[in-house]
Structures are given as C-alpha cells and as structure tokens.
Design a protein around this nucleic acid. Structure first.
Lengths: 108, 108
DNA sequence: AATTTGCGAAACCGAAAGGTTGCACGTATA
DNA sequence: TATACGTGCAACCTTTCGGTTTCGCAAATT
C-alpha cells in the first residue's frame, strides 16, 4: 500500500509515537505502555510509519528498537514552505505599510 | 464532528485545495474545475476545512468565496518545531565536531 | 413569472482506518 | 529441553472516509 507522510501524521497516536521515539529508540512494548491500546495496535502504527520511511528499526536479540528518521520530517517542512512565504510576505507588506504611514506623518 | 488540522491535510485533494485558494479566494465551482471530481465532493472537502477553521467563506450574491486562513497553517509549523530543534541540533553538533577537527589540525 | 445557476444537505455505497483477539515463530531463560 | 518473552501477522468487526446521485433553496437571468 502506498503510504503518505501526511496520512501518517494524521493519527494522534502516531504523532505521539513519533514524538516519543524522537528522543530515543524504543521497543513496541515500551511504546505501548504509553498508550491505552494493545501492543498489536501500536505494532500496526509502527508498520504504517515504517512504510512511509518515517521510522527505522534495529533488531537486538528478540527486541526491536524503533527510531525516528528525522530527515523525513523535513518533507512536511518543505510543503509548509509555500505557505510560510505567504505569511512572511504578509509581514513584509505590513512593514511597508507602517513605513509609509510613518513617512506621511513626517511630511505633516 | 471534532476536526483536526492534521487530519484535514491528510487528503491530497484537500492539500491541493489549500494551495489553490492560498493565492486567491475561489468559489466551489471554480475549485472543482481543477479536479476530477464533482462539485459536491469539493463542497464536502470545504466543509471539513471550514470545520477546523483552515478556511473562511464570504458570500457574494449566490457565489461563496473561500479563502485560506493562513494563520491556522502555523499550527503545523508549531508542531514541527520540536523536531526542527532536533535536526538543527544535529547540525550544531556537526559544527562543533568540525570545529574540533579543525582545532586538532591546527595543533599538529 | 419562468428558467437557469450556484450552492449545501441528505442518502447511499464501497473502501479504508483503527481497534481487538488469536496465533506462529524466533530468542532468551529456567 | 521446556517455558516464558517479544514480536509480527492474519482474521474479524465497527466506524469513518471519500465519492456519487438526488434534492431543495436562494440568487441571477430571461
């Protein structure tokens, strides 16, 4: 199934998982303890996050440690860029407006 | 129904709509022409976007102009901030490492 | 006044989401 | 070797999603 990073972060539990393992790699069991669901449900979320390459896994004995692929998060940032341009531009316009008002004031 | 901005941007069509009306306010009909769906489907997307306050509407005669509430987009940016700290920190560490290497080189 | 246009709401439908339980399998431990 | 542990996977269920068609209503046009 073709996964999308925006669909991945749509679920609040997955966002919480992302924030959780951003600090340090964790096992499914350890992650599941933070939520009110079964380990299997968490496992499903981890599968989805893995499919869109937001997280990676490392096997250690019978345990699997999941960690965040922080670079992938930049894709969201990249998408936001087009809008950041707009809201920053808005400030620019405001600055220009204020400068103009100031100028007119000085002319009085 | 309680709507969430992350769920709102999960759908690719909705993301496209957001990008479309970011530049200028548009009517449902005008928006629908950009997609391979019915106007009613677009109307549903607009309803969802309105529910989470990502867009606003302005009636003009029998037409309704929808426009993006750019400030609401900052919420995504705000959520990203915690991760931006991590990936920027990573660069900081790299800078420190490079500085250290350079220092050692000078000592030789 | 009759007709066209722009729109949202409702009813319906198949697909997908997110959860659960039960299971299989490899790894650690007794 | 027998048992406990950590995990992923499959089957199943209910709810939600995204789409369509049909409809009603108000505004514009004839």
């Amino acid at each position: 199934m073709r996964r999308d990073i925006f669909q991945a972060i749509a679920d609040p539990t997955r966002r919480a998982i992302i924030a959780l393992i951003a600090l340090q790699a964790m096992t499914p069991n350890a992650i599941a303890q933070h939520f009110d669901t079964t380990r299997q449900a968490v496992s499903k979320h981890l599968r989805i996050l893995t499919e869109c390459e937001l997280i990676t896994q490392e096997q250690k004995g019978r345990e699997i440690y999941y960690s965040l692929e922080i670079d992938k998060m930049k894709e969201i940032d990249k998408w936001l860029e087009q809008f950041r341009k707009i809201w920053e531009n808005r400030f620019d316009n405001l600055d220009k407006l204020l400068a103009k008002i100031k100028e007119q004031k000085n002319e009085q």
